[in-house]
Nucleic acid binder design. Structure first.
Length: 212
DNA sequence: AATGATAACAACCGCCTGTGT
DNA sequence: TACACAGGCGGTTGTTATCAT
């Protein structure tokens, strides 16, 4: 058991970063446990991988996410939930860890609002059940979209269907230099500006299911 | 200037899955 | 087929920076 051998933990030093970068640039990614041994790092393979993927890998963007990236995250989270690595594939240069952290810090504060809404949702649901008889179809759809009911698209759609849906709506992301990742849902380009238009209550408490 | 609250970031942990034997 | 292992992923925690009072 490597952990029992006393792998180093905690923040990486510049020397360790250098060793890891040099080793990976020479031998490539993968075989992380042997990287740890061969590069002379007293780190677990997992730790090496994480450091490389989240920090040392070339092409990583640092700094604040743009409103556009934010919009993409919101939309993809609505589609896929906490599939951070899947979401990260649509944000070149951003890591799943970064997106996950961003989501937690930025949208956690909206939970209160979301809970308030949840109560409202229950009330509406109850009322609807009472008035079941003459409920028009459109009403169902709007309610489902706006309030992201328990039987959400997340549960109804398969991963493949999500991917398909995302790729059907294609546009070129301006910040994207990797042609492999230039296909993104067309709706994303409007999310940021649209979120300014609609109220916070509607956006955070209604459209997006913030409760994981 | 001191202090508390919050945001941002880095890293670890545990579980799951894929793959080789 | 069963098992062991490595790697990947999401959840969580700890630390540091920044802002408000």
């Amino acid at each position: 058991m490597p952990e029992l051998q006393g792998w180093r933990k905690g923040p990486w030093t510049p020397e360790e970063d250098k060793l890891l970068s040099e080793y990976v640039s020479l031998h490539g990614e993968g075989r992380w446990s042997s990287v740890a041994r061969s590069a002379g790092l007293n780190r677990s393979g997992k730790s090496c991988r994480l450091r490389w993927v989240n920090y040392l890998r070339p092409g990583l963007k640092r700094g604040q996410l743009t409103p556009q990236e934010e919009g993409i995250i919101i939309e993809l989270h609505a589609l896929w939930g906490n599939k951070w690595s899947t979401i990260a594939r649509y944000l070149p240069g951003r890591t799943d860890n970064e997106i996950k952290n961003y989501w937690r810090t930025h949208f956690k504060k909206k939970e209160k609002c979301s809970r308030k809404h949840e109560q409202r949702k229950q009330q509406i649901k109850q009322r609807e059940e009472e008035e079941q008889i003459e409920k028009p179809l459109e009403h169902d759809v709007i309610t489902s979209v706006l309030f992201h009911e328990e039987t959400s698209i997340d549960e109804k759609m398969t991963e493949e269907a999500h991917q398909e849906r995302a790729q059907q709506m294609v546009f070129t992301h301006p910040s994207n230099t990797n042609p492999e990742h230039q296909c993104l849902p067309v709706m994303f380009q409007d999310v940021a500006s649209w979120s300014d238009t609609v109220g916070d209550d509607v956006l955070w408490g209604g459209l997006w299911n913030l409760d994981d």
